[in-house]
Write a protein that binds this DNA or RNA. Structure first.
Length: 736
DNA sequence: GGCGGAATTT
DNA sequence: AAATTCCGCC
């Protein structure tokens, strides 16, 4: 058995959720897309290309046809399919890569959220992976998000036609089912058959279980990778200790099959990890970081395993790792310069972007492959040869030049610092990312076309603020939160510092990057999109503030603040807001990943967050109770009637919440409202409950925090905090 | 090509 | 809810 997971990122099944669509008919388009992406056979039709998570539909008609086959919708065409894809924009599952035809990009965050609704479970000490699921149910297969090179994945033999790979079983299963199912349809069948549709999907069949021994039929699926394997996979994914290089041996010969270009957008990891990243032969998936660096010490926790069916347990740690990996990748490849505004001394990595994507694609290989495939399939290709889109074909190789090469800096990557720590003991220095408020989404865009009821009516400010931030948007990746939390060290620091009331030191290390821009960076025209999508992809990471230059956002923010809190002095309320949006406070010396070097905060930084009390400030007193801002602040407000103060605060909170949710996309879910109502209490993190549960659109990122933070705990803390605040206020008011 | 509204289907 | 189908617009 070759490890199926070997190289790629083993994207946990969740990404795939096959179970959810047993019949295959229910499969969702994005799942289907991922499925195709991971199969080598379809690389001429659709393949990863470009930045992480970005893929190109090389043969739209074919993809549509396949999709139609799967869904038994013979009439399917690219136009329709693309409409469906466009629906994902609002859901943030996908977005369009502007300027590139047929090119879309997955939003990793979203996927994660979607699939890890329960993140909050991390709350528990998590340190211990409770989850370890034993086993396998047939359900899972491995899924790699961005697949590593196919060749790697599949055994040489198999790879051609039967994706024996991990995924295959599922895929097969699904495919089979779907295809067969279609028969029920009336004429449908005929059409499909005609198209060879079935063939397409079934192509893989032949290998069937044979492949990797997965044999075990259902049980055999790699679904459960056994722990060890999975770990390996993960390592790989994270560039773990293992040699990332992957097994050269396994693949290699299938020269023709290798698609240098499509699969590896990133040739080599830009960052030479300890492991000699450079060697990282197989490009990891674009979606996740491929950086081989050691930074992610992946502690193998069995937890990743998916449970059967829709259930799977998830360990926060794993999630953390994923995110980290992702983050890393972001840093490595896609960061927008803006991300670094906060950190002057950090060098901004140049995003690596193959200059000519479009131009470069060449189709020769594709053609060959296609032919091959056709043959295999039994060729019923309808229409003899379907038109290819020559231009789209792959290009030669991207030249990967490591982004960093350009900037050889000592303090290279921000991410690195923290990560590098030698071995990366499982507990790395904790640093937290602040979640960014959800993007406004297209709202803005729409504004142009027509007024959106919602938004327009609202104060502009509120909209922007919204986001998630709310409470706890920040998520701390600290090493194990679990441990941390246990110790009380990090505690979730939910957004509000206030939580600390408990006396926990709050750590604010937050290397924040705004990745959002990643997209922008890569995409040619940022300008128009900026507002909307920027955060989309990684809302998590981007602090809105950072972009000073970004008038747009700032403006909104500003308004928001203004609206909400007219006064500027550090007010508890503001804190919250600020907290969310403010630039990251300088991390405590020990923690700061980025700043390790010299300066901690440089002027710009300060400028941005002048009032923030957030300054974590002195380690010693880190627990500044947020509620009552220092004495100074207190003095000002001191005499405000408790009631009023309280009220104000409360309202603020609510407002925030509301705005947060609202920020989400326009039409996006009404349900949110419901939730909102539900959570009337102040600042709890939304995600903790369930928002996340589905794919809500609610800002995904939130969820993480919850998970990390331990929702309950945080709630409790909040509660405590409120009480405390109240008490405090009472005292203060005595004077009055 | 791409977008997104609207109505309809699953 | 997630498409599918249509369709006008840019």
């Amino acid at each position: 058995m070759k490890t199926p997971g070997d190289n790629g990122i083993a994207f946990p099944e969740w990404a795939y959720k096959p179970e959810s669509s047993p019949g295959s008919r229910q499969i969702q388009l994005w799942h289907f897309i991922l499925e195709l992406l991971r199969k080598e056979e379809y690389h001429d039709v659709i393949a990863w290309q470009g930045d992480y998570g970005e893929f190109v539909i090389k043969d739209p008609d074919e993809v549509a046809r396949l999709w139609g086959a799967r869904k038994c919708k013979p009439q399917m065409n690219y136009d329709k399919l693309s409409r469906a894809l466009r629906y994902y924009y609002n859901k943030r599952i996908l977005h369009k890569t502007k300027g590139k035809r047929f090119t879309y990009k997955f939003n990793f965050n979203k996927l994660v959220l979607v699939n890890y609704p329960f993140i909050d479970m991390g709350s528990t000490g998590s340190s211990v992976p409770q989850s370890a699921p034993p086993v396998p149910s047939g359900a899972g297969t491995h899924f790699r998000f961005p697949p590593s090179t196919p060749s790697e994945v599949l055994s040489p033999n198999e790879d051609l036609r039967s994706p024996g790979g991990m995924f295959s079983s599922v895929a097969r299963r699904m495919a089979r089912g779907s295809v067969s199912d279609c028969s029920d349809g009336t004429s449908v069948n005929s059409e499909i058959e005609e198209g060879n549709t079935g063939a397409g999907e079934e192509r893989g069949e032949r290998g069937v279980s044979g492949g990797g021994g997965s044999g075990g039929g259902g049980g055999g699926y790699r679904s459960i990778i056994h722990p060890r394997l999975s770990h390996e996979a993960l390592f790989r994914m994270y560039g773990g200790p293992g040699n990332p290089a992957g097994h050269p041996g396994s693949r290699g010969h299938t020269g023709h099959r290798i698609h240098p270009d499509s699969l590896s957008p990133f040739p080599v990891s830009p960052l030479p990890g300890p492991g000699g990243a450079g060697l990282l032969a197989p490009p990891l998936s674009p979606a996740l970081s491929m950086t081989p660096t050691s930074h992610l010490p992946y502690t193998p926790s069995p937890t990743l395993s998916p449970m059967l069916g829709s259930h799977f347990s998830f360990n926060p740690e794993d999630m953390k790792r994923y995110l980290q990996a992702h983050t890393q990748s972001v840093y490595n490849y896609g960061l927008s310069p803006r991300a670094f505004l906060h950190y002057p001394n950090i060098v901004i990595p140049q995003p690596h972007r193959p200059a000519a994507d479009k131009a470069g694609l060449s189709g020769e290989r594709g053609a060959a492959e296609r032919a091959e495939r056709a043959a295999t399939a039994g060729g019923g290709e309808r229409g003899g040869e379907r038109h290819h889109h020559p231009p789209l074909a792959h290009s030669a190789h991207h030249h990967p030049h490591p982004p960093h090469s350009a900037h050889p800096h000592t303090h290279s990557h921000p991410m690195h610092h923290p990560l590098h720590l030698g071995e990366e003991p499982p507990h790395m220095s904790p640093f937290k990312f602040k979640l960014q408020p959800p993007p406004l989404g297209r709202k803005h865009r729409e504004s142009q076309s027509q007024s959106k009821p919602r938004q327009s009516s609202l104060s502009s400010g509120s909209g922007s603020m919204s986001s998630t931030s709310g409470l706890g948007s920040s998520l701390s990746f600290g090493s194990d939160l679990s441990s941390a939390s246990g110790s009380g060290l990090i505690s979730a620091s939910s957004s509000t510092q206030s939580l600390n009331s408990a006396g926990l030191p709050k750590i604010k290390v937050e290397p924040i990057s705004d990745i959002e821009s990643e997209e922008e960076v890569e995409v040619t025209d940022i300008s128009d999109e900026d507002p909307d999508e920027r955060d989309e992809e990684f809302e998590l990471f981007s602090p809105r503030h950072s972009r000073a230059p970004d008038h747009h956002r700032q403006h909104h923010q500003h308004l928001a603040n203004g609206t909400a809190a007219p006064q500027h002095h550090p007010h508890p309320d503001e804190d919250l807001d600020e907290d969310v949006f403010k630039a990251p406070a300088p991390p405590p010396p020990g923690l700061m990943p980025f700043f390790t070097s010299q300066h901690t905060h440089s002027s710009p930084l300060h400028r941005m967050l002048p009032t923030l009390k957030s300054e974590p400030t002195e380690p010693g007193d880190s627990n500044t109770p947020p509620p009552q801002t220092g004495s100074a602040g207190a003095s000002q407000t001191k005499c405000i009637p408790l009631k009023l103060r309280f009220k104000r605060r409360w309202s603020e909170d609510q407002r925030m919440e509301a705005s947060q949710e609202e920020s989400d996309d326009k039409k996006v879910r009404p349900e949110e409202e419901r939730e909102r109502g539900r959570q009337s209490n102040g600042r709890m993190e939304m995600e903790e409950d369930g928002t996340g549960s589905g794919e809500g659109d609610s800002p995904p990122p939130l969820a993480y925090e919850g998970s990390l933070a331990t929702p309950l705990a945080s709630q409790r803390r909040v509660s405590a905090e409120l009480h405390r605040a109240t008490a405090q206020l009472s005292l203060e008011n005595k004077d009055c």
